[in-house]
Each structure stands twice: as structure tokens, then as C-alpha cells.
Nucleic acid binder design. Structure first.
Lengths: 342, 342
DNA sequence: CTAATTTATGAAAACATTTGCAAAACTATT
DNA sequence: AATAGTTTTGCAAATGTTTTCATAAATTAG
């Protein structure tokens, strides 16, 4: 490997080294079958000697795809998004795409700014998290005519194809389970809902389902808790210390439920005989925690994978490839943290 | 907002709409102070009307920075890496950079391929995870003269600046703690170490520390367990069911320790009175789990942040900015899962 | 051994920008 | 009102590729 003394090698450097024209080198990469195998060999060696690396930026300005996909999520700090992104990334990497990743931290203004930046980089497609976005975001997407999918949530009439689970269904499943066990004294713990359509949808449907069964949740049992195990543990402890405590606690996600489980243990309560705790999500660890958590599975890996596939298809074949939404059904998972009231 | 009927607007479209030359539009973006405020206004409106979005690909071929940084990690599925990446991303986004993210799943061949792809995209810098990489990776980095930092681990003489914690120190801290409590019957649970220098370093130092205190770990107490709560729970259960069980279990990371804690509970053991369980990492949730986990904190957020800062500095100011390594010291965190043997 | 095909290569234009240089348009000064 | 000095703008070349079209080389047929 002869070190290249001069600056970065470009296609012309390689052409000279191989004693061919730049066009031929270009063909070597893009249509190798058009070359005589002797020239191919020659170029091969020249590429190696010069340490040449193709410049995608230069290709991109010819209208050739950039080979990048913009991924916009709220935050990687929630393991569930990390899981979705990992699956998405695997799916698109298998087809030669690389992801540009950015997080907006539930700030819809930042989401718009990030999307613009993605477009400056000429991404071939974009994934957004959730269904709810600033109108400006959708308009930008419309005007650029760029493939886009909304990942994580599903809704039939979403503005762009949505691939994910139906939060309403998830919320209903868990609420019905708790009701069917016979609970009437029910508390709820949900994350703040600003800029977070997922949490909002779940909370609404849970309350509606309870109400239509004649159960109303008392105000002081309606907890808004930050997405963190420590906060939920604290709030649960406070809730469980009251003389008058609920027989069941429905949590908006498994992180909150995990904290609530710890909080119950710390308060000296036994789950599920003293109190039922359920979550939504079936995160990693939810099945191993003691007691194992009753929850509703949102198939994160599957969602990420399907979203990746769908977007790549839409990119590669823009006419027929513009697929529709896909519902990845949530599934009730009964484990040990729920039981009939004492 | 007049919709742009024709294809994508380029700088020429804008120039026509504003009745100036393309150069002036270019200056509008790159050196606005050179323009008369009247022309600036005119261009401003033209940009808006045409819906023009700058093309970074076209800029990049002029040697202008691409504004992207390649981030190469083993996997996002380990929450700790997700946390590091999030912090890194925040740090560089604040300076206008966007990250290209890819994971290699502990496959060093893939790492090389991904790095090449990053270079094709003309990233302005690269972060790799851990100190250990294929020689080809380093050579490629050398030949391209691109800023690079090794994130997560620290070692004094690393080939590129390393920013992270010293795993040896972390391993030593936890081993010394367990020894100082008086344990002699000690088991270890570590993840598979192929392609994973972090885990390897930790295991070696733990064993060495124990040995130099006269404690040898029996073969059947030397567990190799996949990084997952369910696997570690199973393995821990098996370990704890034996008639002859250890008085302490040192786990290579907090995920394994969490599973071990669950496994102990499931086996009817009380931690820490029956058995001590400790981890390494201080992951999210480690302080809230019941009993709270004794561990060594690896400051993930700080590491990600510092790495981001360092890389951006090296990119922006290549001469003086090529900073050195940075050690983010691990810290022993004593909690409730450890106690002297019965 | 030509002529007719087919295959392989090169020249030049195109892509969307930036930038050095020079010209034009202002200002200030006399 | 003319000149000198500044500020603002445009022209054209450059960036690293791809691609169309044309030409040269190789192959096949007659």
C-alpha cells in the first residue's frame, strides 16, 4: 500500500494512475460489466494504490440518491425509541442506506429545523416519530415531494403512511383487563402529554374505557409523572402511603410501571395481592422483573423494521412503492403483577 | 407561500426571482454582511417564494465541511450506548452538526465497511466506540487525515484520543469493594468478550484483583452470559440453586446485575443478607431497583458530551484543536445490594 | 481479408454551488 | 461636477462526479 503523498485522491488521480479516462473510472464503479476485464484490473489496482474513496456529494448533485435517510425521534434516552431506531437502521443498512439521526426532545419547533437540515443534506427519505407534527413540517414535506413515513403510531387516516401500533387499542386492552379483574378503585399514572400524542391518546382511551364501565378516577389518583424510574417510584410511594389507596394502578408505559413496582415494594406492599400494577409497552426487562409485569406489547422491533422496509421501497420505486399504512397490533400480555382486588 | 410549480428550486431559480446573479444569492447565505440590505430583502423574499433549500452536497464538493459526523457504535440496544449517543448528538447538534449513525454489532469487518461509507459521505469527523479496532480501520483513518475520537473507554496511550472511563479502574473498584466486605466465595458473570474490549478489560482486572487477594474463582462460578436481563436471570437462578453457592456475585455490567437480582428473588434468596450482587455501570434504574444496586458509575452522559465537544473542536480548528485523551473517572456507588457475608 | 457489427473507451456537457477578480454603483471629497 | 475611494454585484472558472454521444477497437460474418 503506497501512501498517497499528495492531497485526497479524486477520480482524475485514479484515471491517470490507471492510464484511462475519468469516465472509465466512473464506469468501473457504476457499470463494471461494461469494462474489459483487463481495464477493470488496472483500475482496481490504481484505486488501491491511490487510496481513492468515492465522493457521494459529487454524485448527489447529479440527482443520484444520497443514500441517506433522515430519522427524527424525540430522544434516544427512552430505550423503546432506541430499539425502534436500531431495527430501522438494520433494515435500511441492509439495502445500503445510512441514517442521519437527530432528536428534538418533544420540541416541535426544533423538529422543523432539523427537517430542514435533513433536506439540505438531500436525504432520500424521512421518518418521523408519531402522527402529530407541526403543519409547517407537513407542508415542507409536501413541497419537497420526499418519501416519508410516520413511525411508532398507527392511525387509519394519517397524513403520511403510518407504521406502528394503535395506542387507543393498547390503552383499551389494558383498561379492560383491569376492569375484568374486578377493580373499581383505580389510579392512573401518565407522562406529561405536551408534544406527545402517544401518551395523550393512551390516557384518553384509558379514561374513556373506565368511565364507560362506570369507573371514574379520582383527581388525586390521576398522576402526571415524568418518564423516569425514580420519579415514578417516588410518586407511587406517595400514592401507596395514603390510608385510602387504590386497588390497581394503570401506568402509561412500562418505565412508569417499573418505578411503581419498586415503589410498591418500598412501601411494603405485595404486588399483586395488595395492589395491581400494569403498564403499556412490554419493554426490555418487563418480563423478568419480579413480579413480572402485566402489560400490552408494542412490537418495537417489528415497527422499526417494517418502517425501514416501507421507506426504502418508496425511495427505490417511487411510483408503485408508495405503500400505505401498516398496523402492528398491540397484544395483551398477562403476567404476575395483576390480580383481582383483595 | 406560492407553491413552486416546477421542479426543485436551485440557486439560479432564486437568483432569477430576485433579479440578481447566483453569486449574490450564494453570498446571501454565506456572507450576508457583504450585501446591501435592500438586496438581502429581495433575496429573502425570493427564497421564501421559491421554497429553496440549500444543497449541502454541492457545497461539500468545494471542500466546505459537510456538517456531518459519523458515529459508529456496537448497538443501540444497550441503553448505555443510546445514552452516550444522545449526549454526543446533543453536544454536536448545538454546533450545527448532524450525525450519521451506524452500528456494527461487534463485527469488526462491518466496522471497516461502515467507516468507508462514512468517508464516502465526507463526514467531517468520526467517533468510534472503544479502543480496539481493526488495523485497517486505523490505517484508513490515518490516510484520510480525518479527526477521530475513541469514545467510552479511556487509555493513556490510545492510538487516537480516547474519551471515557478506565474500565480497569472500574473493575478494580468493584472487586475491592466486594473483597473489603469480607467475601471469599465469589462468582463472576460477564458478557461474551469477542470483539468487546470493554468487557474483556473489566473481567481481567476483576480476576486479577481477586487473585492478588488470594481469591480464585471456581470454574463453575465463572459465568459467560449474554447481555440480556432474561439470560442473566436464568443463569443466576441456576447458580443460586446449587447447594454450594457463592456469597457474592460480581457482574460485568448493570444489566447482568439486574437480571441476577431478579434471579435471586426468584430463587427465594434475600439480597444482600443471603447473597451480595454488584454491577458495573450505574445504568438508569440501578438506583431505584429493590434492593438498590451497588455498582461503579461510568458517566455516560458526560462521556458523550465531552467526546462531542472534543471532536467539534478538532474539526473547527484542526491545528490547535487536536486535543488529547480525557479520563472521566468511574466512581464507586455503594447501595443496598451488597453486605458482608452471613 | 474486408465489411458489418458489436464492444469498449474518451471528450465534453451537465449538475448546484463557491469564489477570485473585475466591473459597476454608490459616497465622500474637493 | 469631477475624482477618488468604497461598497456591492456579476462573470467565469472551479469543484468531483455522471452520462450522452461519438469514436476507436475488437469481433464476427461473408
Amino acid at each position: 500500500m503506497t501512501a498517497n503523498k499528495s492531497k485526497k485522491a479524486d477520480i482524475i488521480t485514479v484515471a491517470k494512475a490507471a492510464r484511462v479516462s475519468p469516465s472509465t473510472v466512473s464506469r468501473y464503479f457504476n457499470h463494471p460489466e461494461l469494462l474489459k476485464s483487463a481495464t477493470r484490473k488496472r483500475i482496481d489496482s490504481a484505486v488501491r494504490r491511490t487510496g481513492y474513496i468515492r465522493n457521494r456529494a459529487a454524485q448527489t448533485i447529479h440527482g443520484i440518491r444520497s443514500g441517506t435517510i433522515g430519522v427524527l425521534i424525540p430522544t434516544l434516552d427512552h430505550a423503546i425509541f432506541a430499539e425502534v431506531v436500531q431495527a430501522f437502521s438494520d433494515a435500511v443498512a441492509a439495502q445500503g442506506f445510512t441514517i442521519l439521526l437527530a432528536s428534538h426532545g418533544y420540541d416541535l419547533q426544533r423538529e422543523y429545523a432539523i427537517l430542514r437540515k435533513f433536506l439540505e443534506h438531500r436525504v432520500d427519505g424521512v421518518v418521523l416519530t408519531g402522527l402529530d407534527h407541526d403543519e409547517a413540517v407537513f407542508q415542507l414535506l409536501d413541497s419537497q415531494e420526499i418519501p416519508c413515513v410516520l413511525m411508532w403510531n398507527y392511525a387509519a387516516g394519517s397524513r403520511y403512511p403510518s407504521i406502528g401500533a394503535d395506542n387507543e387499542q393498547a390503552g383499551r386492552l389494558i383498561a379492560e383487563h383491569v376492569l375484568s379483574l374486578g377493580h373499581r378503585q383505580i389510579a392512573c399514572m401518565f407522562p406529561p402529554t405536551n408534544g406527545n400524542d402517544r401518551a395523550l391518546a393512551r390516557r384518553e382511551i384509558v379514561l374513556t374505557t373506565l368511565r364507560s364501565a362506570g369507573v371514574t378516577v379520582r383527581d388525586e389518583w390521576m398522576l402526571t409523572t415524568r418518564y423516569s424510574i425514580s420519579d415514578s417510584k417516588e410518586d407511587a410511594k406517595r400514592l401507596f402511603c395514603q390510608t385510602n389507596r387504590p386497588s390497581a394502578l394503570i401506568c402509561g408505559n412500562d418505565i412508569l410501571a417499573t418505578g411503581a413496582l419498586y415503589g410498591a415494594t418500598a412501601s411494603g406492599l405485595i404486588v399483586p395481592s395488595d395492589v395491581t400494577v400494569v403498564g403499556i409497552g412490554d419493554f426490555k426487562g418487563s418480563s423478568e422483573i419480579e413480579p413480572a409485569l402485566t402489560t400490552v406489547r408494542l412490537p418495537a422491533r417489528r415497527i422499526g423494521h417494517e418502517a425501514g422496509q416501507a421507506l426504502v421501497t418508496a425511495i427505490i420505486d417511487p411510483v408503485s412503492g408508495a405503500g400505505g399504512s401498516l398496523h402492528c397490533a398491540p397484544e395483551f400480555i398477562g403476567r404476575q403483577s395483576s390480580a383481582p382486588p383483595a
